[in-house]
Amino acid sequence: MFEILLNHYPVLLKGLTTTLVVSLSAIALGLVLGVLLAFGLTSRYHLVRWPCGLYRSFWRGTPILLQLLLVYYLLPEIGIEIAPISAAILTLTLNTTAFQAEIFRSGISHIPAGQIEAARMAGISAWQTRRRIIMPQVFRLTLPPLTNEIITILKNSSLISVIAVTELMRVSEQIASRTFQPLETYLAAAVLYLAVNLVLARISAYLERRMAGGLATE
């Protein structure tokens, strides 16, 4: 295992970088879209809530591998040529949007209704209420599940090796088939995934401690 890490670290690190770039872009894009979808899910209007709920059901209720294959094969069918890495980021984004929206929706439901009523009484617009009052608290409330989601996406990004994106998993497959040492190679990859996820969990725990307090929900 250490031999593999030592001999192949440049390619492994390159694969790891791709893994991180793909996952983190999907997470960032999914954050923006997820917040919007959460607003849609908590909307007053049935006509807005319903399609948002359907979107959430599909992306949370089917395997991400199936979603990836569907996006990857479907886009060329409808005349959109797209690089594998873009298809990967697109799928992971569409997937994590649904999961993050659900996290935010649950966070929004924990904000006391009185705050929103008070804001309305004070003449603050609905949009300003969301931006200045609801979301800052929701981000703090949802940090632990959000961290879990980031880790899940990082782990799921290993699937994009199937559509030939050369991220960590794909690189390991290449090394394994060249060195005939699959056990050592995949162990090395496992250690890299584990290290990244442990660091992420630590950062999140630190942020959570720092941001504790100041929540108006207590």
């Binding site: 782990k155 290993s158 998993m169 995949y186 995934y193 584990l194 996820n197 442990l198």
Partner: peptide, 9 residues
């Protein structure tokens, strides 16, 4: 911390 895919491989 590790993907299921790695474990399967």
């Amino acid at each position: 911390g590790i993907p299921l895919l790695i474990l399967l491989f």
